[in-house]
Design a protein around this nucleic acid. Sequence first.
DNA 1: TTTATTCTGTGTATTTTTTACACAGATAAA
DNA 2: TTTATCTGTGTAAAAAATACACAGAATAAA
Lengths: 224, 224
Amino acid sequence: MDRYENLENIQVRPDSFECSITADITVFGYVENKLKVLLLKKTVGDIKDHWMVPGGVMEAQETIEDCASKVLHALTGFQNIHFEQVRTYSSIDRHPLKRVITVCYYALIKPENHPLTLRSNVQSIEWFDMDKLPENMGFDHRLLIQDAYAFVQNNLRDRLVVGELLPKQFTLPELQNLYEHILNIKLDKRNFRKKMFQMDILKSTGEKKAGVKGGPLLYEVKQL
Amino acid sequence: MDRYENLENIQVRPDSFECSITADITVFGYVENKLKVLLLKKTVGDIKDHWMVPGGVMEAQETIEDCASKVLHALTGFQNIHFEQVRTYSSIDRHPLKRVITVCYYALIKPENHPLTLRSNVQSIEWFDMDKLPENMGFDHRLLIQDAYAFVQNNLRDRLVVGELLPKQFTLPELQNLYEHILNIKLDKRNFRKKMFQMDILKSTGEKKAGVKGGPLLYEVKQL
DNA sequence: TTTATTCTGTGTATTTTTTACACAGATAAA
DNA sequence: TTTATCTGTGTAAAAAATACACAGAATAAA
């Protein structure tokens, strides 16, 4: 006997089952030489007093990407943040109120460019060290962060995914530190530079960064 | 002025917007030394006479993965097929009848293990060469196939993603052909073998395949 | 049965890529 | 002015990827 034998609700119809969609964005930041994740507690909702990544429901007239922008802005004030899709989660009981599936994204930003403010509906918002995530996280958000982190690590291996993690102009040691902290490994200075230069993605500004011993040169990402 | 200023519908509520979810599965097959995609035309629905990948709506009591299994079985009869998530698409007008977002998967199967039959609601079902996809494809399914194909190629580079594309026991030349056709490049025989052996994923059965000149050895994938 | 044809299976030399490694010059701090 | 810290650079060694040819096995043809 076959559990699918008499299922014919394959076709999209006006009365097809519907459920809510949310976009969740794992926002990574890089500060004090540590990779951080932005988490918040809401003042309202079903799982108060639990930390979660920014997320919220999609509406009729928007794509999920529109929704992600909207949500990020509403909950953090951030605007024009680049993000990429990671994965979609659809466990049946992931949301206590009703059936909700969520499409997840990650974003990389530089916290000092985006000071945290308490927006409406937000009780607390904080950067957490990747290795010191709080115990009480809502929904499946711990899994979600894990997956997003793995995704970022993979992307970093052959592309340049600095995103907004560094200021527009940065030194090579700064870039290398970023890589080391995201990949969680130690890199050789000369080999790292060799690789970056042959990727041909950096442009020297000719200027030196003041206030640092050694007087390191400032670079920026080449625009295509 | 800010387009998001007075949006507060972030929170999941009982009356949050809902829409239908579909799972679409790009099924790749490998036959006659060619990589193929399984497409079908339905007898009912909104875009008749257009080829599309198997897909259908998710219901209340199932995850999207459940849905993908169900849909695949309903439309093709295939069962116990392994598939992986590729990406979620949410353009507003992608479906003519109503708002539908789709979560896409890919699967790799061996056509000769899964003969095509016309199931209910299916008008035609066929394997198409990857480089000879039909003109009249429904929805955004051409894009969807492109993305799935790129995904498979990437996976193949460092993992073994034979899926079900080959029989349980296969020869090294067969495996190499598969790689060459998926990656669309020519590989060196000796180097390919060297790589496979040092990946340590193959187990020799000790038997030779009959009916082939040279008497090639049969291998199978090592189970962990 | 013999012969011809086609396919499999193997090792080594060459090139390319990756890794390891140390010190002089610049700047800030003392 | 001296000291301490950080930047910037090249080369040698190791590892990985690539290029390449022929003998043996099985089928197909004579």
